[in-house]
Amino acid sequence: MERVRTNVERVIEGKPEVVSSALVVLLAEGHLLIEDVPGVGKTMLSKALARSIDSTVRRIQFTPDLLPSDVTGVSVFNQDTRQFEFRPGGVFANIVVGDEINRASPKTQSALLECMEERQVTVDNATYQLETPFMVIATQNPVEMEGTYTLPEAQRDRFMVRTSMGYPVEAAELAMIAGHTEGNPLDDLEHVTDAAEIRKLTAIVGQVFVAEAVQRYTVALTSATRRTDELVLGASPRATLHLVRAAKAYAALQGRDYVLPDDVRTLAPRVLTHRLLPSVEASMNERSTDEILQRLVATVPVPDGTRG
């Protein structure tokens, strides 16, 4: 995994946190939502990650006129065989890069999101299993931008982690000029691993131990988001699952076979923020969900009890 990380970081400079988020999501079999203004390297990150793994990669550019069948695939009548045959859509790959997902119509969006959750595509009564690993890396522009459709809460909830790139620091930007003006740095990237190895790794992640105290802590965190007055929508049970799963992957990435409360705490903002809706009062006080969540994390006590 370290190789993947260094590989990706050759392209995306100065953003280790974003890269680690991406790897966590990959190992936790979740999906990644990258939200930021255009031009900060969202697509580059997805591509670099995809390129590092020797697997099938599809990229779907979401536009307002994209149809659901473009995503899932379509049955076409074959004149020669006189039969309908299935033409797989964009999702039939190990890594699907959904670029600017919020520019497509909600109908198309939901077609993708169904695939994300079910990991299968059903067209004309035939169900097609998607490959494993299967990961969707969706990028989106902030909702205020022109020509965007807001991703509904239910769909945001399906992404395990939302992260944003942010502008690079000056040094990283300078280095970028040097690297990116001569040619496409993606061309130099080599595969450092393959889908089989990723499958093995995800199996290992599944076996990471989560102590009861950590489980309690996770639940305490998510339920705290439901109780606070500053949020109208708290984290769903799915969020709890995602958080634990991400924490397991994070622990595995650190070389540990057990999860620490610190893992949960570190990941909580990335996993939970995009699922929360601030209350009217909180919005008026200009308190972002991020701040609210940080405060909650600071108040929920970490269980210091031993196991059992």
Partner: peptide, 25 residues
Amino acid sequence: RRTDVVAGPETESLGYRDGVVDLVR
């Protein structure tokens, strides 16, 4: 005093005790 107990969330409604988290593999 050592307090081993985290302030209890309303876990029943979530079915936490049925081991939702344990299902994660």
